[in-house]
């Protein structure tokens, strides 16, 4: 078992009323799964992903990640945990505009304090693996959307996470580019990486092994 959410609630107070973003979520994810989270806008898909990614807190319930009780962990410990095991892919890529492809890839390793030579070889391997060696010195603005997302995925994977969280990874791409990214996810999943993606597209959801539907913060 990779992670487990038990009776997780998250709310905000708005005008004296409690608005639930997540309501009584129970979810167990095994290693090697490929899960698609679906639901209409505002149903809490992204919130759930952020909670799983430890970027966002929740108000009630329990969250275990690799048997560590995340809800009781200190900030620093939690940061170490996600640095170690989780990679993120965003809809709008979120590459740093001022850095080259190579430097963007290198950044997570810097924050994990990976040594210089190891960093170089990991970056070289990743460039190779994703077939973007020729682009390593380009800036994000010089790449197409599909290529940028490719770099985004490569960056998420460079520190060999156990779990990749992708928030509408193909939302800004055309269908052909989207398909390529999904194929990439499929291939990664086959190699043993656990993937949770948020998507609006029925077609993309079929790449996954399991679909979770959300409505108004509740699992249905």
């Amino acid at each position: 078992m990779l992670l487990q959410l038990k009776n997780v609630f998250k709310w905000v107070n708005s005008g004296g009323q409690r608005v639930f973003l997540l309501k009584d979520i129970n979810l167990t994810v095994e290693e090697g799964e490929f899960i698609s989270v679906m639901g209409p806008s505002g149903s809490g898909k992204s919130t759930l992903l952020n909670v799983i990614g430890m970027l966002d807190s929740f108000d009630e319930g329990e969250y275990r990640f690799l048997d560590e009780p995340v809800h009781t962990l200190k900030e620093k410990h939690r940061a170490n945990l996600y640095k170690q095991y989780i990679g993120f892919v965003f809809q709008s890529y979120h590459l740093l505009d001022d850095l080259t492809v190579q430097e963007n890839l290198e950044m997570p390793l810097l924050y994990k304090k990976v040594g210089s030579s190891e960093r170089k070889s990991l970056v070289a391997d990743t460039l190779d693996r994703f077939n973007i060696v020729g682009k390593k010195d380009l800036f994000p603005a010089q790449l197409s959307g599909g290529q940028q997302q490719l770099v985004g995925v490569a960056r998420a994977l460079i520190s060999s996470p156990k779990l990749v969280l992708a928030d509408e990874p193909t939302g800004n791409l055309n269908s052909k580019q989207g398909e390529e990214i999904m194929e990439l996810f499929k291939q990664l999943n086959n190699e043993g990486v656990t993937i949770i993606q948020v998507t609006h597209s029925e077609k993309n959801a079929t790449y996954g092994s399991r679909i979770i539907n959300l409505l108004d913060g509740r699992k249905i």
């Binding site: 990614g53 620093k76 740093l96 505009d97 950044m107 997570p108 994990k112």
Partner: peptide, 16 residues
Amino acid sequence: TKEIGIRKVLGASVGQ
């Protein structure tokens, strides 16, 4: 802010 957000998601600490 966007850049800072990305860096934090990629593991940067507040101090860094």
